[in-house]
């Protein structure tokens, strides 16, 4: 693909905002890199404006299934023991998971 003149569609502010929403702490390098890369990719997306989607329904379920549900029953097979539940955590306190105080 030939290099087009690069449009910077996403502002630095937007990149920082996205990182906050996504709970990612980016380095300065990453902020600049993503600003360039995402702008190029998002620019490519404008291709879809060529497609007429009037009266077209968005895909809601590619299988066209509806009404999948189960009866109200307890499934004890899947219940995890306390040990299994806590096993993979790095931060626990007795029977609880823990985080630094959020208040």
């Amino acid at each position: 693909m030939k290099k087009k003149s690069k449009k910077i569609i996403l502002s630095r502010q937007e990149i920082l905002h996205l990182a906050k929403l996504a709970k990612l702490r980016l380095t300065e390098n990453e902020v600049q890199k993503f600003q360039k890369q995402l702008s190029a990719i998002v620019d490519y997306f404008s291709k879809l404006n060529e497609v007429n989607t009037d009266n077209v329904e968005p895909v809601s379920q590619i299988t066209e299934l509806v009404n999948e549900n189960v009866d109200d029953e307890i499934n004890s097979i899947r219940i995890l023991s306390l040990e299994e539940t806590l096993k993979n955590s790095k931060s626990k306190n007795n029977d609880f998971f823990k985080v630094k105080s959020i208040f």
């Binding site: 996504a22 998002v42 790095k90």
Partner: peptide
Amino acid sequence: GIRYGDERELFGDEAKRRIMLGTYTLS
């Protein structure tokens, strides 16, 4: 990182890029 795994900072480059992109398109 609470119930399993490490902090989100350790996501690789490609994962971070896709997360950022996807956050944008849903925002």
